[in-house]
Design a protein around this nucleic acid. Structure first.
Lengths: 250, 250
DNA sequence: CAGCTCATGTGAACGGCTTTTACATGAGCC
DNA sequence: GGCTCATGTAAAAGCCGTTCACATGAGCTG
């Protein structure tokens, strides 16, 4: 169609042909490298081989570029959480923890997105599209929490799923912010961020009365797998799961 | 001594007399208002009634001003956590939760400090003094966790205090970051951030096997969210603490 | 009190960034 | 071939951070 120029040489031709995308990519690289604060509109333009004014044909201002990136970030985030959740397979608790790990993995592997989404100081709820995207991502956690809440052992009060979701989110976000990125990640920890979060979530779920020793429901649909041994009364038998949900601190 | 000029009129006289402090205060106000990213060295100078170059007599550059503020922030943070912990009085669990609330209160009441400390993108561990201050603040949580861990009921494996401290920190930080500040605070929640964190911590402690029914706060200082009828024995009796550590969602 | 000195503040200047404006280019369409 | 409009450019205004030579005056020294 119209890309021939661009395919021959990226910076040739008066018209770039794909500038918007090029700017987004450039910005992504710059943010990963220097943080959203250090990222410069002019730098992105330069990197795309275009004058400093050109980006204004595609973004109202610097903030809109940042918002676009955050938006994409939330979409990818949602996709990854969705994949991790995998509709609760093979069992709800396992899938739930996979979601937690996916949260950390995203923060670690997509620092630019994460930065734009959570650390750029963008007024998220000033932008409806952005807020909606953020909401959709959170809804994955919410849905998972809902499924988990439904598993509450008989006799145990069923916790509000919304509350659980907010709790889990705050744990994942706290661990990611404090230990899983940037300089703070260098803080010497007794365990990896992943292990830290996993233990945290397991202990929390135990506190809600959920059985947290993983078992393998080969193919059964979820509902039944309430443990066969839950007869002893307390769902948190003293000394059960010897060593607790945390591994031996190496 | 030398303040006479300054006392007569803040901006009179060739020499300000107290510029460093004035700049810190100005910056604090600006950061509270526009965030660390929006804060401008020149603006602070203007606000102090001084030329744009003057601040360089007191701070190597803009980042050093920011670091100074973060440093002070960590010190005040430590002081507030220390006061909240109050050496574990009247009982460890109560004091522990007071620390959690103090964390949120600090984030809410000192947005400028919080911003400089956690959201400014400062390379915390590039600055030894800053890192040390941050460490000291964390040590309050660590010490509290230590005391809590020592309370592990007999028969229960004693959790590593360091892990507990990191967990609690991540919860408090997650809640503060996501729900207790700025725009995100507007997200409609089923409960206040304080209640959210309190429930989260209580559930977590329950998951560790701790008894979490508060015992009598001397004289109604504490609104006991859990009615005093939970005494059946197991720390997590099935159906015990009816309603769980969370209040009824209003 | 005279005079010296040094910390502290000023003004001007440099380069960089953001954003706007008037103008240039050329891709797609008749 | 010629029009038109999206897309790019250059130039300029205004702001910032930072540096440098220079100004001021507070406090010491004699």
């Amino acid at each position: 169609m119209s890309w021939r120029k661009e395919q021959r040489r990226a910076e040739r031709g008066y018209h770039h042909g794909n500038l918007k995308e090029a700017l987004l990519q450039a910005a992504l690289g710059l943010i990963a490298e220097k943080g959203a604060a250090g990222f410069t509109f002019a730098d992105a333009a330069r990197m795309a081989g275009v004058s400093a004014a050109a980006p204004y044909r595609h973004f109202r201002d610097r903030d809109e570029l940042l918002s676009s990136i955050a938006q994409r970030g939330f979409e990818q985030f949602e996709a990854r959480l969705t994949a991790a959740w995998d509709d609760g397979r093979p069992d709800t608790v396992t899938a739930f923890e996979r979601v937690g790990r996916a949260y950390l993995a995203f923060a670690r592997e997509e620092p630019a997105f994460y930065n734009a989404m959570f650390e750029s100081g963008l007024p998220v709820d000033a932008n409806p599209a952005l807020q909606a995207a953020s909401e959709r991502a959170f809804n994955i956690i919410r849905a998972a929490a809902e499924r988990l809440a439904a598993l509450a052992p008989p006799g145990t009060p069923r916790p509000p799923a919304m509350m659980m979701a907010l709790h889990i989110w705050s744990m994942a976000h706290g661990v990611a912010s404090l230990f899983s990125r940037g300089d703070a990640a260098r803080r010497k920890l007794p365990m990896s961020p992943d292990e830290l979060l996993e233990a945290e979530v397991l202990i929390y779920l135990r506190g809600l009365g959920f059985p947290t020793d993983r078992r393998a429901p080969a193919k059964g649909a979820e509902p039944p797998p309430v443990p066969p041994e839950a007869s002893s009364g307390s769902s948190v038998p003293p000394g059960g799961t010897p060593g607790g949900p945390w591994g031996k601190p190496k």
